[in-house]
Design a protein around this nucleic acid. Sequence first.
DNA 1: AATCCCAGCAACCGCTGTCGT
DNA 2: GACGACAGCGGTTGCTGGGAT
Length: 317
Amino acid sequence: MPPHPSIVCTNHKQIVVRVRSPFKYQCMFLSIISPGQRVFETPLQALRGKGTGWRICEKPKMNYKKGLWSPDEDQRLRDYILKHGLRCWSAVPAEAGLRRNGKSCRLRWINYLRPGLKRGNFSPEEEETVINLQAKLGNRWSQIAMRLPGRTDNEVKNYWNSYLKKRVTKAQNSDPHGSATSSSDCTNQGPVKHEEEPNSQMISPASQADTGGFSPELTALNGLPKVLLGDCLRANGGDSLHDLGEVMSNPWHSTNSQGEVCGQAPDGTTNGYGGACMYGEMQAQPEALLQIQDNGYFDILFPGSVYDRMDFCDGEF
DNA sequence: AATCCCAGCAACCGCTGTCGT
DNA sequence: GACGACAGCGGTTGCTGGGAT
């Protein structure tokens, strides 16, 4: 009989799994997982695991609204910010009564609601500025937008991609030896850079890695598979969690093709963990047991109930 | 009139940088 | 120094409306 690790909910985001192993007391941090919900972990986070603990991050599964903003939502956000000012964006949705995430609120405010924004077509002067600055700076849209009062980086970027890029390309094709713009600012810049040509002055981490800018470990991180909880569970024959450190030291020893873990109930039901309600439930049921079985399944057992059977499989899901 | 195609744009997503603990 | 939270950025996606067929 495998040991029964006890799960102690430490906060609303994590579950600590304490494993009673014959060797030592190990801890593992788990996300709250609901059936059908994918759980992911970045290799970097895997490497950050140290000693006896590591962490699996849950892709936020809050019931956020997506898509276009309604006038009512706009009004709520505008009213809130005008009243309280710009504060922590992650707190804005709850306080403003919006079912959006903070990031979405921030974007909506910056790109649409904030005072002083210009709407409508770009003037010829603005077009010229964008073309010149794009030639100089590359796709640094935020910097370009700073030179265009009332325009946002998103707006500049969209305008470039949908209109100006074609215009510049066309001008270049018709005059391959000349400047694509009429600006004298570009005379020492050579041909206008196109999106197909990576900005030479902007070195991405990936390109740094390609040129040896990062250690082999970090280089490898860019395209590595991710550690699977199932792998860890099975690292000890599926019946123990006692040596997670060994898995951590070789996090990509065995993964599926997707590099992800899924929690899935065989019957496809959900357990109500999605959305904010899960917090209350978890806090109300702080103690639980994890029963690990030989077939790759494990059960999360809360007092008086079997919550769900999770299948952490290597195969398709 | 119906359907298809495409451009424009709003919004999302993932990564990176910064700051506080 | 390690870590998490957060903001910012740029690439990408996908919806929508209008024009073409």
